[in-house]
């Protein structure tokens, strides 16, 4: 946690020139996999296919696509994000091992599904009703997770799974909260805050409600999404909407 500027300053000019000493080396990639599972798994998942952190199996990254870019991100972290720095902790050889491992993953090719992005966009904002719960840019509602940059964060398969089985890998803090008042009907919404004494939730109308446990009969949290499962969506609509979601990269 403490500030250690000197090693970074000294290394910085060298790193700019550096080449991955382990590029393409399978056994070093395997060593990198061991490190990855310890350091990176909590956010990027055991197979690097993303979770809280971005999917790393696509060959496209948020902070540059070269080996040196990956090295820089792992070594120094990314300021203003949840990506911490590992260089001081594990040393540059181990960072290169991780880079080599991540590179070994990116053979996973995902040809985009055949479809029509514009039709997907139209479906999203009309018949699909997605904008009733999700924000893209300045449109939509905040009931569910914001999707402005979702195409950078998630793989095609993860997006497909989110549509067909929203409970499979729920975005943290979008759990279902059910409050049973002392009198009157239950109130159900998505979690905004929950602790041992209070809960805050958003209902589908976009309103935020606050409750103290003392004042209600019960506050129940379930590991389920309030998003409907689009299981029987026609293939064409599904492909269209997936193309639209993949195109959402926060660039407009």
């Amino acid at each position: 946690m403490s500030c250690r500027p000197w090693p970074l300053l000294i290394l910085a000019p060298i790193l700019l020139q550096a080449q991955n000493p382990f590029a393409g080396n399978a056994s070093e990639a395997d060593a990198g996999r061991g490190l990855f599972r310890i350091m990176c798994r909590p956010c990027h998942g055991i197979s690097a296919q993303g979770g809280r952190g971005p999917d790393l199996t696509l060959g496209v990254y948020n902070n540059g696509n070269s080996d040196n870019d990956l090295f820089r991100v792992i070594y120094h972290g990314v300021q203003g994000t949840e990506m911490p720095s590992y260089g001081a902790r594990i040393g540059d050889e181990n960072v290169w091992r991780m880079v080599t491992y991540i590179r070994s993953l990116t053979t996973r090719k995902e040809p985009p599904p055949p479809g029509d992005r514009a039709a997907g966009e139209a479906f999203f904002w009309s018949k699909g009703g997605c904008g009733n719960c999700h924000i893209v840019g300045q449109r939509g509602s905040a009931f569910g997770p914001e999707l402005t940059r979702i195409g950078r964060k998630r793989s095609l398969e993860h997006l497909r799974q989110s549509l067909t089985d929203p409970n499979a890998d729920l975005t943290p803090t979008y759990y279902k909260i059910t409050v049973t008042p002392r009198t009157g009907p239950n109130i159900t919404g998505t979690q905004r805050n929950i602790d041992n004494f209070t809960a805050e939730l958003m209902t589908t109308d976009g309103r935020i409600h606050f409750f103290e446990r003392d004042a209600v009969s019960s506050i129940q949290r379930d590991y389920v999404s309030l998003m409907p499962a689009y299981k029987s969506l026609p293939t064409q609509d599904m492909n269209n909407i997936l193309l639209y979601l993949l195109s959402l990269r926060g660039e407009n």
Binding site: L35, I38, I46, I90, L170, R221, Y223
Partner: peptide, 21 residues
């Protein structure tokens, strides 16, 4: 499987969570 390197993590892998309350 993980080779021992002095002063480096030697955990032999890891564990991941389940979601339930």
């Amino acid at each position: 499987n993980q080779e021992f390197v002095e002063g480096a993590w030697f955990q032999g892998s890891t564990f991941t969570g389940e979601h339930h309350f």
